[in-house]
């Protein structure tokens, strides 16, 4: 019970996000409320267009809500400047995407180091950290390779290493296994599970039930609203 005393990591209150589209407006998120505690592993499920990515982008401070409140560790995010939002993304959040999103011109090592570069970490310390992370995801031998020389599963492991580089406490994954076959996807999930065990808060969008089963609990979305919770 004591965990409930303290402020949850993420608290959304009546959060709405509207997009202008042609003549009308689309409510991608409709007065959505939600709390996520530190160390939770939450899977977000729902049909295509139900607002899962929009929710993740808002939590990840890539976007601002149209209305409602977003408290990140008790702090109001909506009022932050663009530079402050960048800082939040840099220090508190690690993104993992369906399409891996590595920078093709950079080596594996440079991709992993990227957040450390923006953190202005001393280059030698950054290189050492990148090596440790590569080892953790099992890619020590591939540091000098380009992303295009790696398989999809390997690329996603690089992306996880990069997401962990700045030691954020929240990992946001949007269909991280969407582009991978089942076996490779399971390997990725093992890595995420391991991070969750070490205390990272993870929110993962997926529409595969066996992938969602790795999470502590699941929430089902429909039309920008939470339809139901499972397992909490």
């Amino acid at each position: 019970m004591s965990a409930h005393r303290k402020e949850p990591t993420i608290r959304l209150e009546y959060l709405s996000k509207a997009y202008r589209s042609g003549e009308g407006k689309i409510l991608a998120l409709d007065k959505l409320s939600l709390t996520i505690e530190e160390g939770d592993f939450c899977a977000v499920m729902g049909p295509s267009g139900s607002g899962k990515s929009t929710l993740l982008n808002l939590i990840g401070c890539l976007d601002r809500p149209t209305s409602g409140r977003y408290l990140l560790k008790g702090g109001e995010v909506a009022r932050l400047s663009d530079d402050d939002l960048s800082q939040v993304r840099l220090r508190n959040i690690g993104f993992i995407f369906q399409g891996f999103n590595l920078i093709p011109q950079l080596s594996v090592q440079e991709n992993i180091e990227l957040p450390l570069y923006y953190l202005e970490t001393e280059p030698r310390a950054a290189a050492a950290r990148a090596k440790d992370l590569a080892q953790m995801v099992g890619l020590s031998e591939r540091l000098a390779h380009r992303p295009s020389q790696l398989s999809g599963g390997e690329q996603q492991r690089v992306a996880i290493a990069r997401a962990l580089a700045a030691e954020p406490d929240i990992l946001l994954a949007d269909e991280p296994t969407g582009n991978l076959d089942t076996g490779t996807g399971e390997r990725i999930m093992e890595l995420l599970l391991e991070q969750n065990r070490r205390g990272k808060t993870i929110i993962m969008v997926t529409h595969e039930t066996d992938i969602a089963a790795y999470a502590q609990y699941r929430l089902q979305m429909r039309d920008g609203k939470i339809e139901r919770w499972e397992g909490r």
């Binding site: 990840g60 663009d82 960048s86 800082q87 939040v88 990227l114």
Partner: peptide, 16 residues
């Protein structure tokens, strides 16, 4: 464009 999006998501500021 995509690279710019990646850098911004990671935490690069506009001025960076």
């Amino acid at each position: 464009t995509r690279e710019i999006g990646i850098r911004r998501a990671i935490g690069a500021t506009q001025s960076q």
